[in-house]
Amino acid sequence: MLLGIETLLLILVLILAVVSLWIRDLMSSVVVFGAYSFLMCLIWTGMGAVDVAFTEAAVGAGVSTVFFVAVLFNTTRRIQFNPLDLSAKIFSAILCIGTGYLLMLGLSDLPSWGDPQALVNTNVSKYYIESAYKQTKVPNLVTAVLADYRAFDTMFETCVVFIAVLGIFMLLKKDGREPLKETSAKANDNLIIRVASRFMVPFIQLFGLYVVAHGHYSPGGGFQGGVILGASLILVAMAFNIEFVKQLLSIKRMLLLAVIGVIIFAGWGLVPVFLGQSFLDYSAWAALLPGTGEIMARSHSMLAVEIGVAITVMCGMYGIYMSLVSDGRFDKGL
């Protein structure tokens, strides 16, 4: 047991999960799910996973709630309740309780909560903790492992984000021959919201860049910074209208930038292959970057890779929001 408050938070999380599935109104259910994500974020801070908590606060609580709202705004929030299909629910409940019981049987083999000598904490993770700073000069161990030791994993995760954006874009894309509705492109006429968001957006973007660049020394990195940058663009699209944000970053340029982000990551890893090292072995960059040894080359390469991740994730979040909210037509927002 780590902290008494975490037990309390876990029970609260369970209650919120039940409530979010129980409510018979989709919008309220989504909002409760956002609160659930924020509580999860508190739990992860308590367990020492600050980077995960940061990502969850930006992605799970912020952007995914916006995605749900963007879909529900244009469709319906009502749920038809049919009391007749209770038997199917009871049957699946029995099925799930049975599976849960089987999983509970395996509980005795798992290490107890917070055990430093558990098997998961001793082998490779011990090596990472003890030698990451010596080998890369990056004090944030999460960034070091994310962008260097397990860079292959991260590269394909970035590709998955890009492919998901591409899939959403292609599923929702209309061929442009449908007549546009005249009344749809209406600017938001609320002065207070426009002025406040015009004041806040530069600071949000500055903070996003800070998170990307300062990921070596504090919680943050490409994923979190990219999500914050994308969220700032989403804020512009909500406070103004979608035409305005399309002038800032058009859809074609968004797709191009997403490709460029993946290419930065993969290309930066491909260069060592031509220098006689293996793929994503950044220490070979010492021959190309002036004035860096092998250790600092790894440290600088992480920054380059994180920038690639940030560009792809930013364009991903922006593209998913724009596609979902306008049903692929890119002409009207919330």
Binding site: A49, D51, V52, T55, E56, V59, G60, V120, N121, V124, S125, Y128, I129, A132, L141, V142, A144, V145, L146, R150, D153, T154, E157, V160, V161, A164, F223, V227, V313
Partner: peptide, 14 residues
């Protein structure tokens, strides 16, 4: 442990 955190960090974004 940083290792489990990495795996989950990327899992959230994906």
């Amino acid at each position: 442990n940083p290792l489990t955190q990495i795996l989950m960090l990327t899992a959230i974004v994906v």
